[in-house]
């Protein structure tokens, strides 16, 4: 049997230029310096002042959250403290130049009441009554009296009697 040659006899190690002792000494000193610095730097969360400041900041934040955030909110909150009658009384006594535009600025769309329309049954009654109260069925004197009471001048130039408008 052929003996296997020892492979290690057929290659040599190449000499690498290993650094001298001062290289290792320098490296050790560098690492000690760096690691010592790391140890002396206290993490922020370990400092008592950090927790005091954090507590104060949290308290301030909670207070801010509970305060009204704007002047408009202040105004609305104050209005809620008075009844509608009190407000109406104050306006009639103290505010002569009442500006409805200004008021509407503060009334949200949801707060505006829907106009109450007449029920359909009532409208039918009116329609029925139309036929009964036609112009030809009314006495002329009654018509003149009506114009009088409504202060309508039938002799004005731009007045044109529209019979359809005279339905009651």
């Amino acid at each position: 049997m052929k003996e296997q040659k020892d492979i290690f006899n057929y290659f040599n190690k190449k000499d690498s230029d290993n650094p001298d002792a001062s290289y290792f000494e320098h490296m050790a000193n560098n690492i000690i310096e760096k690691e010592t610095k790391k140890k002396t730097v206290t993490p922020l969360y370990k400092k008592p002042s950090f927790w005091i400041i954090a507590a104060a900041a949290s308290l301030a934040f909670i207070l801010v959250l509970n305060l009204p955030t704007s002047q408009e909110d202040n105004f609305l909150v104050a209005l809620n403290d008075f009844s509608s009658n009190e407000i109406a009384g104050y306006i009639s006594q103290n505010i002569t130049d009442f500006d409805s535009d200004l008021i509407t600025e503060y009334i949200s769309e949801n707060d505006i009441e829907e106009p109450v329309l007449a029920p359909i049954e009532d409208l039918e009654i009116i329609e029925e009554s139309e036929s009964n109260i036609r112009l030809e069925n009314i006495d002329s004197q009654e018509i003149l009296d009506y114009f009088d009471s409504e202060e309508i001048d039938i002799y004005e130039e731009d007045f044109q009697l529209d019979y359809d408008e005279l339905y009651i």
């Binding site: 040659k5 492979i7 006899n9 057929y10 290659f11 040599n12 190690k13 190449k14 690498s16």
Partner: peptide, 13 residues
């Protein structure tokens, strides 16, 4: 970069 040098004589190497 080699860390070894081959010496001739081993047929596999």
């Amino acid at each position: 970069a080699p860390i070894l040098e081959i010496i001739a004589g081993h047929d596999v190497l």
